[in-house]
């Protein structure tokens, strides 16, 4: 889609989007689809927003849940993040990455902010214990995530050195700062910084991440 038709009536794109049956998202690459939906959302298209929700909500919630270790808080964060996506969609800039990266950046940041706001470690431990009461859906989701594309992410994580992998997962899924990670892994600060960066670079190459599309 060129920018020539940028001005062409959101009405038409709304109609076009809502005419596409829901489950048949399979027709196009979901990443490209998220980009198109987010652009429609930026024009105030609520139908597009509902479809974008269906595309990303489980990942936003899953990420929040993993970082926060508390379903109730994860719900709140998911709600905040998705409303934020709606509110600020106009600021999404394709030149600075994909829609999914934009959304998960907001989601991760929110989850991490909240974790850090809660100083008390004891509180987190309590939550960790509470969250081990799994619902059946989670079991299924865990089973499903062992497959398909996730395999690639897991395989690529497996291709990192142990220190790279631990540094990255403690920061990303655990919401820790690199200083905390250095303490947890009993490793010098500069080493942790470096391992985070070269580990992510190796992951990027393994996943075939591309920015210019």
């Amino acid at each position: 889609m060129t920018q020539g038709d940028r001005g062409t009536r959101s009405a038409r794109s709304a109609e076009h989007l809502s005419a596409v049956p829901d489950a048949k998202t399979a027709g196009t690459d979901p990443a490209a689809q998220a980009d198109a939906l987010l652009r429609a959302v930026a024009r105030g298209d609520e139908t597009a927003f509902a479809r974008l929700y269906d595309l990303v909500a489980a990942r936003v919630y899953g990420l929040a849940r993993r970082v926060l270790r508390d379903p109730a808080q994860a719900e709140e964060v998911t709600q905040e993040v998705l409303v934020e996506v709606w509110r600020t969609a106009g600021r999404f800039d394709t030149a600075r990455g994909s829609a999914t990266a934009w959304i998960f950046t907001i989601a991760h940041r929110r989850a991490v902010d909240r974790v850090r706001a809660e100083q008390a470690g004891a509180d987190r431990v309590r939550r960790l214990a509470a969250s081990s009461a799994e619902t059946p859906y989670d079991e299924v989701v865990d089973e499903v995530t062992a497959h398909l594309e996730q395999q690639q992410v897991r395989r690529c994580l497996g291709g990192l050195t142990e220190l790279q992998r631990e540094a990255i997962t403690l920061a990303y899924y655990g919401g820790h700062t690199y200083r905390e990670v250095a303490q947890l892994l009993n490793t010098a600060l500069p080493t942790i910084k470096t391992r985070m960066r070269d580990g992510l670079i190796r992951l990027r190459d393994c996943l075939g991440v591309e920015v210019a599309s």
Binding site: F49, A58, G62, T78, Q79, R96, F104, V153
Partner: peptide
Amino acid sequence: TELRETTARLADVSWSVPPPRLREEVL
């Protein structure tokens, strides 16, 4: 930008289905 795309992929492995009512609330 590239590293952000990469970290976003890490979110792929942590799906969890939100309660269905969340959708109604958000919308």
